[in-house]
Design a protein around this nucleic acid. Structure first.
Lengths: 332, 332
DNA sequence: TTGTACGCGTTATCAT
DNA sequence: ATGATAACGCGTACAA
């Protein structure tokens, strides 16, 4: 099998030593222009291509590869996050290997192992919901790591988060202000820290409004659009909910489906924006944050660590904004 | 800097030769159980981790890394595609380095170079709209490559596509059937082959229906939601369009926005499904194909090539389905 | 079955 | 400024 021309071939073709070629390829300045020209020519005619894998095994050298592990690349939320990371790291000459953990701790651990074996220079991870190995249990040496969207189950580490509790509280506050008293909470498992925080924001806003929280109005078992639709249908029919706080975009979409199927809607506010929130009737009000920016900040934090510098903060909490579009009001 | 324990360290700790450790790590069977146990122990206590980068430079060994270059990871269309690819290659033990070209040929070429230098075992590429370097101009050795979603500008190579012309024709056919005679075409640049094909399907369906194509009803200058909104507004107001064929999901969303702003809609069919097509009123009819499957097939084709086998087809064309939801009918 | 010695493509040391 | 040579971590002839 042809492995392509190497530096040695280039050196021979240019009648120059190996080291000089290495210098040339790495952009060293102190090279005789005449030799440089010979090398350039040899590189051109031979079609020489650097072997970064070989270079990276040298002491002091790195792969200039970063790893990103998220829940599901197919989910627009995560792909937007990935895009934010990508922009930042590409600008610095890194390439990104991306992988989906499917929120499975074992899968996540396997991916981490694989990327460590591949000798990535750093890792950005959205920790899976629960379980899995603690970072501290891994044998050194370990590259820098930054957590995004959720803190690590075991805590600790550089982390970039959204202000989930405040966002949820803000949403519930507005629903109360619009006259709702029985506000349903529809979301994913409480084991996910973002969900726990949103739930907490929901509770505290109710408390602040002097409304007793009714556990029957809360559904934490929603993983898909379909489950969300059923949950909302049930909460409307059986629990007399007079407003819905949808704790993620799947829940929002499920709620909208339930409204449509029922031919009747109640005030709704969702967490996280979604592509066509403005196209629904009425347009859907959401609390949301800049996901791409969250990714970019995580990337910046990681690159700072790789440079050996100290990031500004151990935990960065991003603000959440209310995008008021109409769905928070009662029908008609 | 600590580079971590190597095979040599493990061999010493287990009082065994380097080669035996190598055998153990690579899962060879013919190993003295006693030595294997000693090695296992040493690996454990030392926290040994394989260095895949070092292994990959050996002759006959590969990086077990694949490269994926798409237009924009942030676009749900491409992230779904990426997810499809990911599923397939992970199952085979490969990791995926993903990158966005932003449809820029130069950027695309840079990314290709970078991945070749990183010695990926194969490449899956959504070719940028136009220009750039021909694959044939690259010096060998080159890993296998598969094109997805669009053929290479220079033609050739293994390619996986959707049946764009048929899909577009199907959509226009239905709009005609519903009574439309002045159907607007709203899409991105004709330089993109998918767009050219959809345009062609649009034309041929009109012709088949005996309707003269009016170039004034065609807008190929739409790259964003906003531009699509403006284009549709203009086509409705100035050109008397009585239906809209939106040639991609950005165009669909722009059309829906325009309808909303105008307070008046006309029959609409879009190309490519989008997250909340079912939530609009009426629900949006689209022609679409299984994007994740397209990615999976591209991945399978690539893996077949990597195995040294011959893929079943040089070009695979995936069927497009009509999802009828209501928006193809006239208002009220 | 196990070990020795070498090569993979690159960069760094050190002498020239 | 340039070149000979030694690593880097690993897998494989080939010998034992």
């Amino acid at each position: 099998m042809d492995r392509g021309p190497t530096m040695i071939d280039v050196a021979e073709a240019a009648s120059v030593s190996l080291k000089t070629v290495s210098r040339y390829v790495n952009g060293a300045t102190n090279i005789n222009p005449e030799l440089a020209e010979r090398i350039r020519e040899a590189v051109q005619t031979l079609g020489y291509r650097r072997n970064l894998a070989a270079a990276s095994i040298r002491p002091g050298w790195t792969s200039r590869m970063l790893g990103l592990i998220i829940g599901d690349l197919g989910n627009p939320y995560y792909s937007t996050l990935a895009r934010g990371v990508e922009r930042e790291v590409h600008a610095r000459g890194y390439i990104l290997t991306t992988a989906s953990s499917d929120e499975d701790a074992t899968r996540n651990d396997e991916l981490v192992d694989r990327m460590l074996e591949q000798r990535v220079d750093g890792l950005i991870i959205v920790p899976p919901y629960t379980g899995g190995r603690s970072w501290a249990d891994l044998p050194p040496p370990l590259p820098p790591r930054v957590l995004v969207d959720r803190p690590a189950p075991e805590g600790g580490g550089y982390t970039v988060l959204a202000d989930n509790a405040a966002g949820a509280a803000r949403a519930v506050e507005l629903l109360v202000q619009e006259g709702a008293t029985r506000i349903a909470f529809v979301g994913d498992s409480e084991l996910i820290s973002t969900m726990a925080e949103r739930r907490q924001g929901y509770e505290s806003a109710l408390q602040a409004a002097g409304i007793a929280a009714d556990p029957a109005l809360v559904d934490h078992g929603v993983h898909t659009d379909e489950q969300a639709e059923q949950a909302v249908e049930r909460l409307l029919a059986d629990q007399g909910a007079d407003a819905v706080f949808a704790a993620n975009n799947r829940a929002s979409i499920g709620a909208l489906r339930a409204f449509r199927a029922r031919g009747e809607r109640v005030p709704l506010i969702g967490f996280d924006d979604f592509e066509s929130a403005e196209l629904t009737s009425p347009a859907t009000t959401v609390v949301s944050h800049d996901i791409a920016r969250m990714g970019a900040i995580a990337a910046q934090t990681l690159l700072t660590l790789i440079d050996g510098d100290e990031p500004a903060a151990l935990t960065t909490v991003l603000p959440v904004a209310l995008r008021r579009r109409g769905s928070e009001r009662a029908a008609r």
